[in-house]
């Protein structure tokens, strides 16, 4: 499992640097703006008042944009979705990419168990996500010393832990779907769709209370954002990690039991409803 972890992490290193440095640069750019916000507080509040109330409600109020947590809330709101793109693509490709290209056959012909391969790759994915967020956190934390925000590096860690938990939930969902659906693309597309739906439903639930039950079953609702600097909601955090663990366990269970596809094969042999088969034959 050690070799699998090491080699998978090596494969991730380009993406760790690209995503991590890009998001760190974003932090280095954004945090100094806080002082500008404070200086322009009056005009900023006027600007916010000019927004339609629906837009304000979508982003959870944002009335207190000049407070550190309010400011960070606004800046970090889309981070789970941005980094979620990495997580969904990487999660869906973790095993399915090698399987679709035909490489998994040869890898699994070596004395490595499916569980070890799965565990090693999953651990490397988690480590890669953690590494990207660490770089990102550094980018948001380094400017703190020159800012009047009054947030410590330790406090800044907490929103990023929340991001990590949400992103892992989307990534492991993509991994699970890649074990269930007939192609990696479908898995990535479906998990990406769930991620975007989760983001919008969370916002729209602030406008329409009827949507709240739907938002509550999706991960983004449990992203704390900037308010985490005042204390991480451990129930939400642990809940998201538990969901990720559940998705991972299901994916591992499925990977242990199913056939490995030959490169180019599209089907995992899942039962297709009879009417769909008939429909396909008719269309041909």
């Amino acid at each position: 499992m050690g070799a699998v972890f090491r080699y998978t992490l090596i494969r991730f290193r380009g993406r760790i640097l690209a995503w991590g440095l890009a998001l760190a640069a974003l932090g280095l750019f954004i945090i100094p703006f806080y002082d500008l916000y404070l200086e322009q507080e009056e005009s900023m509040l006027q600007l916010l008042e000019a927004y339609p109330p629906e837009v304000m409600a979508f982003f959870g109020g944002m009335a207190d944009i000049t407070s550190p947590e309010g400011f960070l809330d606004g800046q970090l709101a889309t981070l789970p979705v941005i980094l979620g793109i990495f997580a969904v693509l990487a999660g869906s490709a973790l095993l399915a990419r090698d399987e679709e290209s035909g490489r998994l056959d040869l890898i699994l012909a070596h004395p490595v168990s499916r569980l070890a391969l799965f565990g090693g790759r999953l651990a490397a994915f988690v480590a890669a996500t953690f590494a990207i967020l660490t770089l990102c956190w550094l980018g948001f934390s380094i400017p703190l010393s020159g800012s009047s925000m009054g947030v410590s590096w330790g406090q800044m860690t907490l929103p990023f832990l929340s991001v990590l938990a949400v992103v892992l939930a989307f990534g492991t969902l993509a991994l699970l779907l890649s074990m269930l659906l007939s192609s990696r693309r479908r898995a990535a597309g479906t998990a990406g769709g769930v991620m975007v739906a989760s983001f919008f439903l969370s916002g729209l639930a602030n406008l329409n209370a009827d949507l709240e039950p739907f938002a509550r079953i999706l991960p983004y609702e449990y992203f704390q954002g900037g308010s985490a600097i005042n204390g991480l909601n451990l129930v939400w955090f642990a809940g998201l990690l538990a969901v990720s663990a559940f998705f991972s366990a299901l994916a591992g269970w499925r990977f242990q039991r199913r056939d490995i596809r030959v490169g180019g094969e599209g089907s995992l042999g899942l039962a297709r409803p009879a009417f769909l088969s008939r429909l396909r034959r008719t269309s041909l």
Binding site: S101, G102, R103, D105, L106, A109, V262, G263
Partner: peptide, 11 residues
């Protein structure tokens, strides 16, 4: 066992 698949795919 040593295995060589019919369609070899390498990194």
């Amino acid at each position: 066992v040593g295995y060589l698949p019919g369609e070899l795919h390498l990194e």
